[in-house]
Amino acid sequence: MKSKGEIWHLLRKDFLLEFRTGYAISGIFLYLFGTVYIVSRAFQQIKPESWNALFWIIILFASVNAVTKSFVQESNQRQLYFYSIANPIAIIISKIIYNILLLLALSFLTWGALSFMTIDPILKPDVFSLTLLLGSIGFSINFTFISAIAVKANNNATLMAILSFPLVIPVLLLLVKLTAISIGLVAQDITNDILLLLGIDLLLLAMTLILYPFLWRD
């Protein structure tokens, strides 16, 4: 299939660019470790409830930064070039996959760093890993799409936050709930929440795929 090849090439291009410059990833990781360090110094002792909240606040801001960066690194002329040779759907899918991988790495690193510097309250690592996966997918789709919008408005960072935070709240609420379950704060069956999260992810993905072709034409 042609678009499969396109997605693959675009992904490879994103990774190559990243490996060559290392600008975005190193910036984000520095940001991440800085935040985790400040948080663990500021909170001398962290309760599992606060750990849950802190974890997702760190992830939320790190993700917004990460995804916004991944879109600005290309100049308008280069974007025009991509659009002329590739299918818009392939472009957005490759961006989403790239961001999912980036956010997954980010989530697991935050988990590791926060556990290393404070505590590791997670009792059910399998549930938590699944939560991180679904969370990365949801965040990635949402933020990628919104950053595609924000890029048109001169990539206004405030606009990115204003547009994406309210939209990401349903996903975030479910993630916090699932994390509470995997910490053992709440004893509950997770099937419903996982399915709901998956449903929201799919809904956002479908909307992104339908709407993106209208966005890029400029």
């Binding site: 799409f145 939209l167 709240i169 349903p170 709901l196 449903g199 929201i200 809904l203 956002l204 909307m207 992104t208 709407l211």
Partner: peptide, 10 residues
């Protein structure tokens, strides 16, 4: 359109 659809779960 995106916001309206994202509102449904909300």
């Amino acid at each position: 359109i995106f916001a309206f659809v994202a509102l449904i779960p909300l």
